[in-house]
């Protein structure tokens, strides 16, 4: 497999990894208010992704993949909502440890990385086209 095709494969793995990252971010955002269903129960715990490099034997390219989807171990913030079904005896409810601003920033980073990988794919594809074009139009 030549280097340009290897570049395509690597960039495609980048697209996949960033897509999964975006999926996790959207899960966090969707569940930013998901409290538990019984008094004192734990709410939604924020998910995090970790990237890991995988060396492709066939091409020598540095593919990337999501190593694992973990849970953020930080403490749940607490709000005073006595009417909530998850409120403990003092009326406090544990809220998900999701910070919407952090998630939005992560989302725009993921978008930026996604776009960059997409550009690599476009460029590698164009370079291959240029090579084939050498034979065209003679």
């Amino acid at each position: 497999m030549d280097a340009l095709t290897a570049a395509l494969k690597v960039a495609a793995s980048g697209l996949g990894a960033q897509s999964e990252r975006l999926r996790v971010v959207s899960e966090n955002l969707a569940n930013a208010q998901s409290t538990g269903s019984s008094p004192g129960a734990d709410p939604y715990r924020r998910k995090t992704v970790s990237f890991v490099t995988e060396l492709d034997r066939a091409t020598g390219g540095s593919l990337v993949e999501i190593g694992s989807v973990d849970r953020d171990p930080s403490k749940f913030p607490v709000e005073f909502q006595p009417g909530n079904e998850a409120a403990d005896e003092k009326g406090y409810v544990k809220m998900p440890n999701v910070n919407v601003l952090v998630e939005m920033a992560d989302m725009s980073e993921a978008n930026r990385s996604y776009e960059a990988n997409l550009q690599v794919i476009k460029q590698a594809r164009d370079l291959i086209s240029m090579t084939i074009d050498l034979l065209r139009g003679q």
Binding site: D2, L4, I128, T131, I132, L134, L135, Q138
Partner: peptide
């Protein structure tokens, strides 16, 4: 095969 190798070989043949 490698794209460029094919193109180079064909041009040389031409």
């Amino acid at each position: 095969a490698d794209t460029r190798q094919v193109v180079d070989a064909v041009m040389s043949a031409q």
